[in-house]
Design a protein around this nucleic acid. Structure first.
Lengths: 112, 112
DNA sequence: ACTTTACTCAACCAATTAGTTGACTATAAT
DNA sequence: ATTATAGTCAACTAATTGGTTGAGTAAAGT
């Protein structure tokens, strides 16, 4: 299994490392929203949210479409899938460790 | 479904947003390694790798044990699982969109 | 005892980040 | 025609990041 440089993952993980942006992602999973909609729950300027959207957009996590004077944002699943695919390579690892723990506990249990 | 502030995710995603650190994670999935082992493939100082390990360790992604003069590092699966758990909430989203695409293509196809 | 190895620490640097404000443009509503 | 809304842009700030070097400590090898 070659390492496969995945430059997408840099921006995807980086974008998701901010809780404001994760909240925005969560919000967009419920459907399209405008920038102002997205900004409303946060105690920060619209400019700040706009910058967050830029980060999400650059990472390909979000699609922004200008309609009149509003900008409508949608979640894009592809980069999330790439992230999960990368992380899943190590799923076996922690499953193994949980298995090991389960075996350990079972052994302890059989002693009583 | 409440949003559930997950402060771990900040550091987990942030730690994984660097390709050097992802390479280290990949390496550790094959088994324990010392700091020098981990540093060897990279064209950067041991200090730099040590800092990367500090980031991974702070994120709980890695366990560092001092043995004599060497430090032995192991991968910890738990934060990766948390990340996958968070991302999986949006798995349905992109599956739906691929379904939608498939339906769209099927419809286009039936027109010819 | 001396030298090499494995690693840390502090200081520094350049670039990036997450936020602000104030001034601006473009669209929509009255 | 005015006014309000939606959003951008540029300039600034403070904190963080990813890297460096040089000097130091502690353990192991010879």
């Amino acid at each position: 299994m070659t390492v496969h440089e995945m430059p997408h993952l840099d921006s995807t993980f980086s974008a998701l490392s901010d809780s404001t942006r994760r909240a925005i992602v969560a919000r967009l999973a419920d459907g399209e929203a405008t920038l102002s909609d997205l900004a409303e729950p946060f105690e920060m300027s619209l400019t700040a949210v706009s910058k967050h959207m830029r980060v999400l957009s650059d990472a390909g996590l979000v699609d922004i479409e200008k309609r009149g004077r509003t900008k409508h944002c949608r979640l894009r699943g592809a980069p999330i899938k790439e992230a999960v695919d990368w992380l899943s390579k190590y799923e076996a690892f922690w499953i193994d460790r949980f298995d090991a723990l389960a075996r350990h506990l079972a052994k302890e249990d059989s002693k009583t």
